[in-house]
Design a binder for these strands. Sequence first.
DNA 1: CTTGAAATACTACTACG
DNA 2: CGTAGTAGTATTTCAAG
Lengths: 180, 180
Amino acid sequence: MSTTKVRGTPVTAAGAAATAATAEADLFHALDRIDRAILRQLQTDASISNVALAAKVKLSAPACLRRVERLKESGLIRGVVALIDPKAAGAGMLVIIGVVLDRSMPESFAEFEKAAQKVAGCMECHVVTGEFDYFMTIRTRDSDSFNRLHAEQLLYLPGVRQIRSFMVLKEILSTTKFPL
Amino acid sequence: MSTTKVRGTPVTAAGAAATAATAEADLFHALDRIDRAILRQLQTDASISNVALAAKVKLSAPACLRRVERLKESGLIRGVVALIDPKAAGAGMLVIIGVVLDRSMPESFAEFEKAAQKVAGCMECHVVTGEFDYFMTIRTRDSDSFNRLHAEQLLYLPGVRQIRSFMVLKEILSTTKFPL
DNA sequence: CTTGAAATACTACTACG
DNA sequence: CGTAGTAGTATTTCAAG
């Protein structure tokens, strides 16, 4: 059977699936001071070598490496990625979009979600409470290319009744790092 | 003088500052097929070793490493970070917030922006067009902790006239990767 | 169950063609 | 850009707390 563990608490795959919510909370509370220091560092800069990381958290290299691998296997670290500068990569425009679906066809929600993920440059898509059904954020080259995307794709996503676009004029903060 | 280059095009610091917008566009257009393959891979998984990356893009290891370093120095790669699973890390709740400022005090915008970045769990903060002045996204533990944050901090951010909260019920898509 | 020391295998990095 | 060599790192093994 496939098993994974964090800080000495073994968790079977079946057990994790049965009590997903509490298992995730326990995952977090099982972290000690050193694990959090590791996560804080890797959230800021994961290109650091393992020996340097080990020195920072005052641990030997093998012990440090084992913890990092455990954090990856447990799913707490979803992955290690390079962050690209959007402007430099030719996607300097960001638009936040509020979407209202046609409520008379409830089956269209699944269709919409499937289609929305395939929109080029779609970075986020969330179901929300309030006057909108979904919020999406889309990165695109400029207002021309967004206008094309809007006219050719967004308006024709399945089940869409209304779309409101909020163009981002200035990005104050955009981070992947949250407090531990 | 400090200089950096991408694909053979030298760019002085002064020149880059003077023509920032076009320089960034050129940065992107100077990328060849191999650079884009490297970026696509590193956006998906940057924990790959350099030799494995080199094999994927059909290049020798040193040549591949030189390109990666050039992409970092040019600023196109802003950094390499570990992505943490928010639910597993005890921040399973996501709220999108639309903020309207008091327009009678235009100097409060700078104050608001400075304060907003310090809000615990604030992941994004953007100036937008439309009925709101700012959109923020905030990660927090649960509705209780968000309610506390809302009552104790958000309402008292400098210059705030109105705040509308959109609670995220389901995260359909959340990525840091965009098409190249 | 976790840690740290030593040994091995692999990788990053440099110099050169 | 590639080849070859060196330095440093990751990774395994093992003994000890």
